[in-house]
Design a binder for these strands. Structure first.
Lengths: 257, 257
DNA sequence: TATGGGTATTTTCTAATGTTATTGATCTGT
DNA sequence: ACAGATCAATAACATTAGAAAATACCCATA
C-alpha cells in the first residue's frame, strides 16, 4: 500500500512575489489565462507566491480548493490513487502550466496534485479569479481553449495507454516533455532536466518500474537517448520520432485543439 | 490495417424536428447545455435533426466542423486512429450526450466520431450556438461544467487503462454504461441494450477481442453478468461493484466534478 | 429453410509485461 | 568519511495478454 505523499502540505510565502507585468512566463502560450493579458486588472487580484518543497501534496482529490494555482517554477504532477494504493499519474506539470484549471468552474477536482521538485506556485483566490475570467470575453475564450487543450492532451495519453507499446509510450513521454519544455521556453538544446524517478514514469505510462528500466535500456542501447543524473538527452531525434509516431500538433493551443 | 469507417457520412433530414420545448431529454443533466434552459431563446437557433445510419462517420479528427451535435437517440463513440490503423475508443456516446462540446471553442477536434447504431442527431450551427452560449452566464457555466465533467471522465478512464486489470476494466465499463443510461433516463431494471461488438469493447479498454471474450466469459461464469443478443444483464450488482472498485461519483455533474 | 456475412469462442502458441528478490550505485545529511 | 535512505539495474520466474487459425454461432434475408 502506497503512502499518499511523502510530505504534508507545507510552504513558505515568497515576499515580495514576482510582478506579473515582468513575469518571464508571460510570452508563453501555456501560461495561465490570467497572467498573459489584462495585467492592470490583474493587479486587483490578490496574487501570492509560494515556495513549496519537493514531494509535497498541494491538494487532494475531491477536497474543495479555495485557490487557483499556476506553476511558476519546478515540476509537479496530477494523479489519482485507487483504493488499494495503485497510482495513475494523469499528467506532469511543467513551469508555466496551470495546475487547477477546473477549479475555476467547480470547487473540487477529481485528482490530486503534488510537487516533484521544489516549486514556486502563483496562488490566486479561486472565486475572485473565476469571476475575473468570466468578466472578460477574451479571458473566457482563453480559459475555454485551455480546457479543450487539456482534454485533447488527455485523449492523446489515453491512446498511448490503450494502444501503444511500452517502448512507444516511453519515447513519446520523452518527446512530449521535450516539446513542452521548449514551448514554455525553459530549455535549450537536446539535453534537459528530467527529475522523474522510474516510479513516476511507470505510474504515468501504466507500467512497472522494472519494465520502465528495461524499456529505457532498450532506448539507450539503440542510441536514441542518453540519461544520467536527472539529465535526459535526445541523441537521435529523427528515429525517436519514427519509432514512436510522435506528432506535436496536439500541443498547439490554437487552431485544431 | 483497419478501414476508417464502414459507411461514409450520409443522413436523412427529419422534418419536422422534435420541438426542444417538448424534448424528452431536457430533464436530464447530461443533455446539451442548450436544450435544458432558455428554450425560448433557443428557438432562434436553427435546430435540425438528422437520422444517421449505424457505423457512419460524423466527422473526422482535425477536420473543421461547422456544426454542434447532440445525440438525441442511439449510440456512438469518439475515437482516434493511429497511423498504422490501431484504434483507441475514447468514450461511448449515449442518448442525451453532447458529441462535440469542444467545437464551441475551437473549430476542429482531436478525435473522430461515428455512430454505432442508427442515431438521431440534433444539429446546431456551430458559431451561432457558441455565441448564444457565451451570451448568457448560466449557459456558459453549464458549458464549462460539462467540459470539466468530460475531463474528469477521461481521467477516470486513464486510470482504468493504466492501472486496472482486464476484468476490472470490463466490469467498470458495464457499470459505467449502466449508470449513464440510468442518469439519462433511457433505462429500467438491470437489463439494458448493449450494442457494442467485442471489437468496440477491446478498442475502448486497450485489449484484444480475444481477451475481451475471455474476460467476459469469466464474468459470466462467476454469475456476475449475463449477455445475449445485445442485451446486457447485471446479475450480481454488489459483487460487480466490489471486484471493480466502481464508484459513480465521477458521473455527477455538480459539486466535485 | 437454406445461405452467407459478420461475430464470438476456443485452442495452442508466443510475446510482453509483471513479480520477487538481490545487488550495486547514488545521494544526503552528519 | 560514514550510515542510512533512495534509486536503478539485473536475473529468474510467473502471469497476463496478444497472434493465428479453426470452429461455432447468430441473424438477416432470399
Amino acid at each position: 500500500m502506497r503512502e499518499d505523499v511523502a510530505n504534508p502540505t507545507s510552504y513558505q510565502e515568497i515576499v515580495p512575489p514576482v510582478d506579473c507585468a515582468a513575469c518571464p512566463r508571460r510570452p508563453h502560450v501555456m501560461y495561465s489565462p490570467i497572467c498573459g493579458e489584462a495585467i492592470d486588472a490583474l493587479r486587483g487580484l490578490r496574487l501570492r507566491q509560494r515556495l513549496v518543497p519537493a514531494k509535497t501534496l498541494i491538494f487532494r482529490e475531491d477536497e474543495p480548493v479555495e485557490e487557483f494555482y499556476t506553476l511558476f517554477d519546478g515540476w509537479g504532477f496530477r494523479y489519482k490513487l485507487l483504493a488499494d494504493g495503485r497510482r495513475q499519474i494523469l499528467s506532469f506539470l511543467l513551469p508555466g502550466d496551470p495546475l487547477t484549471l477546473g477549479v475555476l468552474t467547480v470547487k473540487a477536482l477529481s485528482y490530486s496534485v503534488q510537487t516533484l521538485t521544489v516549486a514556486r506556485l502563483c496562488v490566486f483566490d479561486r472565486e475572485e479569479t473565476a469571476a475575473f475570467i468570466q468578466s472578460e470575453s477574451e479571458l473566457r475564450q482563453r480559459y475555454q481553449r485551455l480546457s479543450v487543450h487539456e482534454i485533447a492532451g488527455t485523449y492523446e495519453r489515453l491512446a498511448d495507454l490503450g494502444r501503444r507499446s511500452a517502448k512507444e509510450r516511453m519515447a513519446r513521454l520523452i518527446l512530449d516533455i521535450h516539446a513542452r519544455l521548449n514551448a514554455n521556453g525553459v530549455m535549450q538544446g537536446n539535453t534537459f532536466d528530467f527529475p522523474l524517478r522510474q516510479e513516476h514514469v511507470a505510474d504515468a505510462l501504466g507500467l512497472t518500474t522494472i519494465h520502465v528500466s528495461r524499456t529505457l535500456r532498450a532506448l539507450r542501447e539503440e542510441g536514441l537517448v542518453a540519461y544520467h543524473a536527472n539529465a535526459m538527452q535526445i541523441l537521435d531525434y529523427q528515429n525517436l520520432v519514427a519509432i514512436s509516431g510522435f506528432r506535436d500538433n496536439y500541443l498547439a493551443l490554437d487552431g485544431t485543439a
